[in-house]
Design a protein around this nucleic acid. Structure first.
Lengths: 202, 202
DNA sequence: GCCATGTTGTCATTCACTGCCACACTGGCA
DNA sequence: TGCCAGTGTGGCAGTGAATGACAACATGGC
């Protein structure tokens, strides 16, 4: 039993090493210019092992991205049925974004590198969207049960809308950094939420 | 000059034939169970030619989907700066959805088949999202210019939000059909818009 | 008939991804 | 101590997506 914990830790370690190697190589040579063999070699594993950790080379660089989603899922237990869903989801995201400390914390730095890369690498962006897409259904289902409704249209709209707003804010955050006029992540997210309200009920 | 028109027509014809073949084969054998060679053979062209028409096998089945986006882009000229963007985009989409006639018109039937397939084929869904993603930037830029603003945060939120709401409605439409209790597409879209308003300003 | 242009097929190549098998490690148990 | 599961890893072969290069072909204009 302590054994499985040890195994898990080892696995996480290897995952991190492969992920780091992938991110670095993508930054240096681009996604298309990097083969799975390159990544595997840099991480000290075989290509075969690489695919035991990640289903595609793009996914390897998305570890910082997937960790955000995992944190969202953990925090979902705190949600209640008698308050607007979107509002609560936004609070969850706020809390997560705060932990990034505008790119100064380690997770923040890593996420910034990934989002920056996503700007110029459509394959990476698509892989990220694909990952999110996979999670949405499970998320929506949980919220549907929480609300005790048959129809998941409401939860689905809340989840996807929340995701869109966060995504837009993160994009702008990375964009502004690259353009040399950095903006604050939380302020950008607040601005995006304000604009959403304004768009929907002008 | 009449020549280029002829060529264009021929090209469209081939595109349609490949697209039809792809859609049919995907329905019959699944996306993973269908190779590019299968599609090309069914359409009477070589695999090399296939890739001169579509960048991936998934894209071939998305012709009905891409035609919607093209129609959106055509109708963008009608937009004005002094009315809420999201509202105008929703009107554009309404007009397009009307033309589908709840799946009774030819484009409607085709789109229904694609959306149905997208439910069970993640690769297809991802390809569709990827296509949309490619168009968003150009769309956002046009709207930014139209509004005469520097910042594209507003237009981007409007475009992506509008897309999310349409996407959710189309999903539910195809879902309900498959489940044997069909719903009206326009009514579903209206319901989705209502729920968005409710979510955002409860 | 001839040329310019665009279209197509064939071939070769790279590379992502998967299944299969053998080998190594580790921790329990006689 | 030696056997024996369970698990992780690498090597290997195979499939199939995607691309570049080149030659053959069709077609409309001269």
């Amino acid at each position: 039993m302590t054994e499985t914990v040890l195994r898990e830790r080892r696995r996480r370690q290897t995952e991190r090493e492969i992920g780091d190697a992938a991110l670095l190589l993508f930054e240096q040579q681009g996604v298309d210019g990097t083969t799975v063999d390159d990544i595997a070699r840099a991480a000290g594993v075989s290509a075969r092992t690489f695919f035991r950790y990640f289903p595609s080379k793009e996914r390897a660089a998305l570890v910082p991205h997937t960790e955000l989603d995992e944190r969202v899922e953990e925090m979902l237990d705190g949600l209640v049925a008698d308050r607007p869903l979107l509002e609560q989801l936004e609070e969850v995201w706020c809390e997560i974004l705060v932990a990034l400390d505008d790119g100064r914390s380690e997770p923040g730095r890593l996420l910034l590198r990934v989002r920056r890369l996503m700007r110029s690498e459509p394959a990476l962006r698509l892989a990220a969207i694909g990952y999110d897409e996979e999670r949405v259904d499970a998320l929506v289902e949980r919220l549907r049960v929480l609300l005790g409704v048959d129809d998941d249209l409401g939860p689905r709209l809340a989840v996807t809308t929340a995701a869109v707003v966060v995504g837009v804010a993160l994009d702008r955050w990375a964009d502004a950094r690259d353009a040399g006029r950095p903006v604050d992540l939380l302020a950008t997210y607040a601005e995006a939420r304000r604009l959403l309200r304004e768009s929907v009920s002008p």
